[in-house]
Design a protein around this nucleic acid. Structure first.
Lengths: 212, 212
DNA sequence: CATGAAATGACAGTAACTATCAAAAGCGCT
DNA sequence: AGCGCTTTTGATAGTTACTGTCATTTCATG
């Protein structure tokens, strides 16, 4: 099962060239995340405290905060952005912009979900249920939005800080956000990529005739 | 200076028919808000604590929490939504939907800004500077988004809970959010209504030829 | 192995909330 | 005006996320 996509989630064992220190860091990071996921599935988000997480991950609470600025950040790690950036750069410069977006978002979604489907599902449920997580997700997606602004700037020669570009990017982000929410609300039953396609249709063409 | 718009910010003195209790409630609510605004302008958002707010407003900290669930909510009161709902209902049913949106959003913006320009400006600055406030604003705007879903459902007969309608609404919200941010980042120099128009142009027609 | 740098843990502190309960204030009735 | 009844308030104690600091441990390097 060796998939060949550009960016992959890297496990500490995969990289012997990294120093022991670096490998340990990756390990504790993973330990904290794993502990958090497990505890949340056992007791729910709010009932899970940092102290519990620290205890199960066998680190001190201080360390937890050193690795993740907030509790929400523990569940919301964003490995997406680097993927998106790379995919954006790899697309042919003459590809129509909407096609680029569609392709890149599909890849990011695929990587995010296939990389760890269980975590992806948990995240989407937390987004639905826990306002703080949802908020944090929005913040993080708006960073992604700024990246899109830059990309649009490079592609079209527009000013990436112009109102128009920024509004375009954030409306895209808003749509994507709602798609994720929708997916989570419906128990992750539907194929996320299919939802994504419908979303991008709406964003491109507005609410046109066919859709229910 | 008696303007005749539907919803107005009501001062306690304006309504003698309200019971003493109700009038007092409005008064303390206002006192808390006023104290908060003043303190934030003096010392900044983070440096302003609930205890300070309570002290200046001459109530107990408990009372502050009774009136506002979170610190962010104190600065972000949403009187917008009721206005939007009412304006939406008042529009002729056969008006093209984009026109309705434009009209309603203009009215809401006008009410929000003219009602208390100083507060509006402070809010937009806090949105730019304080992540927590920005997050809370997004949450509150996504509620507004759900209202738009309902309105779209009534207008077009679509299922207001369908992915398409929800995505459309949230992309609208995303765009509006970014507009407010942009306005705040640029020191509230520009006419907000003009920005709003440009935003709605982008949302309707995408990034087309003319804009910089 | 010795020396410097980075990571960790322990500790103390802050501030936003939550829960509870008794005191106080407005309300309605006579 | 006085008296129950309900609502609002304040005081108090507790929880938890998060910050800052400093000594100790752990790794890197010559």
């Amino acid at each position: 099962m060796n998939r060949m996509t550009a960016a992959r989630i890297t496990s500490p064992a995969d990289r012997p060239q990294l120093s022991l220190r670096e490998r340990k860091k990756i390990k504790t990071r993973e330990a904290i995340r794993t502990a958090t996921y497990a505890l949340i599935e056992e007791h729910g988000y709010d009932a899970t405290t940092i102290d519990q997480i620290a205890e199960r991950a066998e680190v001190s609470p201080s360390t937890v905060f050193r690795y993740f600025p907030t509790k929400e950040d523990i569940v919301l790690t964003d490995e997406y952005d680097p993927i998106i950036v790379e995919e954006l750069r790899n697309r042919p410069a003459d590809e129509p912009w909407p096609d680029t977006v569609r392709y890149v978002m599909r890849e990011a979604a695929r990587a995010g979900i296939e990389g760890d489907p269980r975590a992806a599902r948990l995240r989407s449920h937390l987004m639905v249920q826990v306002p703080a997580v949802r908020s944090r997700m929005m913040e993080s997606m708006s960073v992604t939005g700024r990246m899109f602004c830059t990309a649009i700037g490079e592609r079209t020669g527009r000013d990436p800080d112009s109102l128009e570009v920024r509004v375009y990017a954030m409306s895209l982000i808003g749509g994507l956000m709602e798609t994720t929410l929708y997916w989570g609300e419906h128990g992750n039953q539907q194929d996320f990529t299919a939802l994504l396609d419908r979303t991008l249709d709406v964003l491109q063409h507005g609410l046109s005739a066919r859709n229910p």
